[in-house]
Design a protein around this nucleic acid. Sequence first.
DNA 1: CATGAATGAGTTTTCATTCAT
DNA 2: CATGAATGAAAACTCATTCAT
Lengths: 217, 217, 217, 217
Amino acid sequence: MTDQEKAPAKRAGWKRDPAKVQQDILQAATREFADNGFNGGRIERIVQLTATSKRMIYYYFGDKEGLWRAVLEDAYTSVRAQEAELDLADLPPLEALRKLFVFTFDHHRRNADFIRLVMIENIRGGHVLASSTKIRDLNRPVVAMLEDICRRGAADGSLRPGLCPLQLHWELSALSFFNMSNRATFSGIFGAGLHDEAGQVRLRDSLADQLIRAVRA
Amino acid sequence: MTDQEKAPAKRAGWKRDPAKVQQDILQAATREFADNGFNGGRIERIVQLTATSKRMIYYYFGDKEGLWRAVLEDAYTSVRAQEAELDLADLPPLEALRKLFVFTFDHHRRNADFIRLVMIENIRGGHVLASSTKIRDLNRPVVAMLEDICRRGAADGSLRPGLCPLQLHWELSALSFFNMSNRATFSGIFGAGLHDEAGQVRLRDSLADQLIRAVRA
Amino acid sequence: MTDQEKAPAKRAGWKRDPAKVQQDILQAATREFADNGFNGGRIERIVQLTATSKRMIYYYFGDKEGLWRAVLEDAYTSVRAQEAELDLADLPPLEALRKLFVFTFDHHRRNADFIRLVMIENIRGGHVLASSTKIRDLNRPVVAMLEDICRRGAADGSLRPGLCPLQLHWELSALSFFNMSNRATFSGIFGAGLHDEAGQVRLRDSLADQLIRAVRA
Amino acid sequence: MTDQEKAPAKRAGWKRDPAKVQQDILQAATREFADNGFNGGRIERIVQLTATSKRMIYYYFGDKEGLWRAVLEDAYTSVRAQEAELDLADLPPLEALRKLFVFTFDHHRRNADFIRLVMIENIRGGHVLASSTKIRDLNRPVVAMLEDICRRGAADGSLRPGLCPLQLHWELSALSFFNMSNRATFSGIFGAGLHDEAGQVRLRDSLADQLIRAVRA
DNA sequence: CATGAATGAGTTTTCATTCAT
DNA sequence: CATGAATGAAAACTCATTCAT
């Protein structure tokens, strides 16, 4: 590690690490897009959040759309990477399922930016995601976990037969996603009771209970 | 009879209906905002969808934000009005709940534009909705229905005690809303199996079953 | 005096007093123009300040320019009318002059709106005023007073010979007008010391002293 | 040598000077604002007076208000810079005062645009100037000159004691400023006698005489 | 006389993108 | 790789004025 690597950026006539530059841009763009949407996001502001210049964005990402794509893929990558650490193989099916739901619920809460990016992509019609095999691949493991749980649950008789792993994933996602995506309007209409810290824990555990009740044999 | 008399609109001496003009604008704006978001929505395009002029939008709605507010309030008004027709008072609690969920699920499917508007409002932080007492009031009846169901269910012992009507509404909304809001990304990643016509019916009924299982005594 | 005359304006199907309507408009327009300049003044706002409608402005005054003309003439009329009450004929020339200056200075202070209108007219090139014989006539009496003072001062030897009444008027105006017209920038730069209540009285009296010193024989 | 090489401006591959661009804009904006006021001034026209594009105005000055601020500061800067050349230190107080007044009077006459800008700023309430420490600082030297004159005049007994330098500055400004600011209305009402070339010299010298008479011991 | 609705032409402002060095 | 300057096309918004009733 040299002195130069510690230099406070923007040293004239100095070579920066390209990978780091791109990462900086992605981080700034994530912030900006998550806060303001795609159309509301400003290239100008992204530049100001970065140590780089406007030229670099176009150099690395082509145009605003390309930057958006990169941001979305980056978000999926890092969020799904966090899920990989989860180890449910040693737990009995019902407990595994409960743990997965609780994790998913909390995980969504921890990744508010990601939620917003997915909301925005949905409003845009999801065409960027549709053309990204990378993102598709990233999502296989989660469903694989549920397939395993269902298989084991059918085998030991702890789960109702006929459960669809993909639908279960859909349900876990729906509850966890909606909790974040519609927080503003829901608490705007009905008050913040379900969304303050205590309310969220209560809600999560209550949903977990219901889920178990709904799927056990 | 001259050509002029056949001219389709904007004829001098013609009786214009202000309420209709506003309604026209609202309808066009709903289309445009739902399709393109707030920032992506173009006043210009809204005008072209209407028989009026750009100036009239500002005359009636002040600015783009004011138009957005009107669109949102209008959407909530008409969507909630449709719900009012639902009569659950004569059904036993469990059946009432199932019927309410099925209705809610289908109702969301029927109102794709409304879903998109709510998504957009959430991305914008929900501040327009937060300052609209009108919208808040429109949402009371739905929860009132659930309160009634819970009360009757507690009385006749068909429902588990301790159920929270507001949380139930949250759950119904979550499942129904997510089904529409994340259709693009979800089916983009996992295929359209859950979202084609047959899949939707199966999903809906399966969710209804689970719901009943989760809440009955 | 009938009941109707006391009615709170805007009685449907009721004849208003045309002169009063015009006076209302003039008053509102004076406020608006004085506050925001000619270009910054909004017909819309003038209407809102009035009990009348936009149509009436155009009916009575033709266009914005015509309204401006009327406002300016009205302002000169009422301001000069107040000066007519001043009676200096019985005072010795030096005392008359001092009294006239003090009055002029205070009079300008009392009529901030008028000052602003004159400033605006000057920025506009004074062409409205140039074409108004009415306003020209309104200003004769002030100079006539000074002519009388000079004549009497020359006769009794209390004033230096060779004084020009018009120039004296110019001086009185300059000091009194500048005091109001440049208050914002002057006190912005040098502090409000000369413009608070005590400072204004001191300034006025000091200027009066200097004036006497400058013109007495 | 081709025609293209003779093209006066906007040639690709041409070295543009940013400082000059800004100076050009400032100059054009000064013209436009001085002629038409702030609200009457048109960005469009400013562009046409310049070799640049509308976009560059916003690039450098943010918005119309920012441009106005820059114009005002620029005007104060260049006008006050001209005053710095004046050297009164070697003259006896009374002569220094006379020279300062004559200079100030002529200086205002030479800078009609500046006067108009200050008038406009006053009509706008002086809030731009109020927030500009730069402009405040530019005005210190003038008063410093008068402080010096008063000090020396008090020392050698040529000036009345108790004179306030700031008030003297106020007076010099009032007479010099009003002469320009109210020229249109004053000569519109009373004729151009005081404002043609001969009249202005006579007026200036007469005012100088009165001033001396008013302040000498 | 009175009024809400309507209009067209214009005004400021914005933004992704590219150029010259 | 890096950067400030530049651009064109289009966006939101404004305003005096007139029309229909």
